[in-house]
């Protein structure tokens, strides 16, 4: 069983690596937010898997649960900032 868990961890980490490219190249702010949100979900699953691998699942699931809550709050916060800028007609993208 630990082999299956470790394999899942490696596969998900590979996914995070692929997503990091989207975070870096963008091209819009919203694309980055989508990628970061997906990385957040993957982090929750990684925490659960690592908990089972380390033999202390209850302990790590607590952290995963709080991360699930905080991740949502973070995404909504970024979106409110974005919405506010759009409503005021300010530029939302990096001018560079």
């Amino acid at each position: 069983m630990p082999v299956a868990l470790a394999a899942a961890v490696v596969v998900i980490l590979l996914g995070v690596l692929v997503l990091l490219r989207r975070v870096i190249v963008g091209p819009r702010l919203l694309d980055r937010v989508v990628a970061v949100n997906v990385i957040g979900t993957k982090t929750i699953i990684l925490l659960a898997l690592v908990g089972y691998l380390a033999g202390r699942p209850g302990f790590f699931l607590d952290i995963a649960l709080s991360y699930a809550l905080i991740n949502f709050v973070g995404t909504i916060a970024v979106l409110r900032y974005y919405e506010g800028r759009v409503r005021r007609g300010e530029p939302v993208e990096e001018e560079a």
């Binding site: 299956a4 899942a8 596969v11 998900i12 692929v18 997503l19 997906v38 993957k42």
Partner: peptide, 29 residues
């Protein structure tokens, strides 16, 4: 359990590739 974990992690990898290579914002979403 092993089958579900394997399938789920492969689905998450597919998600990652989808977000990375799809052509525009809505398809990535």
């Amino acid at each position: 359990a092993a089958a579900a974990i394997g399938l789920g992690s492969l689905l998450m990898l597919a998600t990652a590739f989808g977000v990375a290579v799809f052509p525009d914002f809505y398809t990535r979403l």
